[in-house]
Design a protein around this nucleic acid. Structure first.
Lengths: 331, 331
DNA sequence: TGCTCATGTGGGAGCGCTCCCCACCCGGAG
DNA sequence: CTCCGGGTGGGGAGCGCTCCCACATGAGCA
């Protein structure tokens, strides 16, 4: 009980394999009644082209891998980053008739499997999301002869076109806003320093403080809500007189707000708070969170565009998207 | 600049294509020094087998699709169900050298794409996670001539082997526990009734109440924390004298505990609470949550086993895994 | 010495498809 | 009536691989 082949379709329609192939691929040089006959045969037999045979000759698969090189705990968290990227990438690639294949690469073994899968020619290209410095995948994938683009600047210097948002600039704008508010002791809760976003946002904070002659007060979290709460308590112990805090992501900012409330500090009267990411929850905190928005969907679309340009042999240069300060009530 | 072929490897090693193929596929009938020569040629050329050509002849791809037919908001939520299934399925299939390809099918268009992808022979089999009654995928996939198994009983009657946990039995055990505690007015917060888990857990609740001559008090949530809080307030309005509540999942139970606290009810003294799922957070609620544990990883492993049996032409009968009542302090 | 037989190796077909190239048909022009 | 040319259709090669079968080689035994 084998699947019907193009040969069978052609025989049933009384035409050659070549003509049947033309109909399947929508070529216009086929006479209408022949086209109809072939179409009928296809429907009757339930014919579906064998993708292996097709891609053997075309050297294309029309599938794109989206490799998420993060531990599952982070991928499946409250942070909507990954779900937005996945949805948006699928949407963009559907428009050009390509299928997204999602692969999670957390452990060393899964890295190896992903690499083998891609080296085997299962996909035409790779979109990589990898935020950690120690990640071996960016360099490993760039060695394979496969078009690769990255969401976010790769942590290691490697020849991969990428799309990123302006983390440094966004952080600078946020801290400058706090300075403009007349705040004197501006602390920060930084993200993990083995992640590119964590590094860049801290750099932005430092740039502004340095220029404006403030002292920096730093605590480091790991981008989770809980770590934000812990870091905030730490900061309050370190410098009880602080009157502002720039938090490197909204999830930690939510935790920080909670710690501030427990410590009896009013926001923004006693302490102004600015977050980063503009997640959904930022609108519903008490008070609503001032934060830096970066356009995830646009960034993803730009990444897809970059990959398509790679297919077309066009030049693919890194893209940096601007961020926007969303002023609510917390600062 | 093409990828090297087996032909090239054979030529470089001074052997035939057949022998080179034997080495690549680890057959033992090759003389050691020839094996070494071929291996050296492979390494020098950086040869990787072309998967399209291979699967064209073997009729296998060694890839398995894991189709998650849920909206991304649910997949990427606090509920660790999906991340556990994905991780566990990958782990199990790695052991038999198969690659998991993850596909999200939320919209009607993505259903169509997934169907086409599978019909095109990209994968050897499909693991389906689909909880909603209206979902067209189970029947659509079962029509294709592809081995399909399901995580959870399909909502529509369809010829797909599945692995499920004993939702009805688990709910019965939970409610019987409340009855045994001497509780008289036992309410429930049910899950969405278009989902199989929501239905079954409500059935279990009704079975026990009916047998033990209690009155049923039902509110319906949608498995989110917030909906649990809302439903609990609703129940307290409906019947202020209730002294126990069975909640269809832990996330809603967390919300319910919050509402009970706000209403000034002590748990378990005034109101006993039992949840379902035994998520991580259930240990850290105040008080820790009594709940029904079902083994997600084991269920996933059983599902993988079912699929492998399908490949081996073995009989594949539905598997129902037992649940376990975890008694903590809330009931 | 001649035969068998196990062990390794090579030749070649064929998986299902696309696409190049050529043959054919028909209408219109000379 | 012949010839030409554009539009249609078919033949066939070949994508890179696996696997069946034939065959070479040398050890072991009569």
């Amino acid at each position: 009980m084998r699947r019907p082949t193009l040969e069978a379709v052609a025989a049933r329609a009384g035409v050659s394999r070549a003509t049947a192939s033309r109909v399947v691929n929508g070529q216009t040089t086929v006479a209408p009644q022949i086209r109809d006959a072939v179409q009928r045969a296809i429907d009757e037999l339930g014919y579906v082209p064998n993708s292996a045979a097709r891609s053997l000759v075309t050297q294309r698969t029309d599938s794109i891998a989206l490799v998420v090189s993060e531990p599952p705990t982070r991928v499946f968290s409250e942070d909507p980053l990954f779900s937005t990227v996945i949805r948006s990438a699928s949407y963009e690639l559907e428009a050009v008739n390509k299928q997204v294949v999602l692969m999670l690469a957390s452990s060393a073994e899964s890295h190896a499997r992903v690499e083998r899968y891609i080296a085997g020619g299962h996909v035409d290209g790779v979109m990589l999301i990898s935020m950690h410095g120690a990640d071996p995948l960016p360099s490993a994938l760039s060695r394979l002869r496969v078009p690769v683009v990255s969401y976010g600047r790769p942590a290691v210097p490697v020849e991969i076109p990428y799309v990123d948002n302006d983390n440094v600039g966004g952080a600078e704008t946020a801290v400058r806003h706090l300075v403009g508010l007349g705040r004197r002791r501006i602390a920060t809760i930084a993200g993990p320093q083995d992640m590119i976003g964590g590094q860049d946002r801290l750099t932005g904070y430092r740039n502004v403080l340095h220029d404006s002659d403030h002292r920096s007060i730093v605590a480091v979290g790991d981008f989770t809500r809980e770590s934000g709460a812990v870091a905030m308590r730490q900061l309050l112990r370190d410098d009880p007189s602080l009157d502002a805090v720039f938090v490197a992501n909204d999830l930690m900012a939510v935790g920080a707000l909670q710690s501030l409330r427990q410590a009896g500090r009013r926001v923004p009267d006693d302490v102004a708070v600015v977050g980063f990411d503009d997640i959904e929850a930022a609108r519903y905190t008490e008070p609503p969170l001032t934060t830096v928005r970066h356009p995830i969907a646009e960034q993803t679309a730009a990444m897809v565009g970059l990959l398509l340009r790679l297919f077309g042999e066009g030049p693919a240069v890194p893209v940096i998207l601007p961020t926007e300060l969303i002023i609510r009530e917390s600062a």
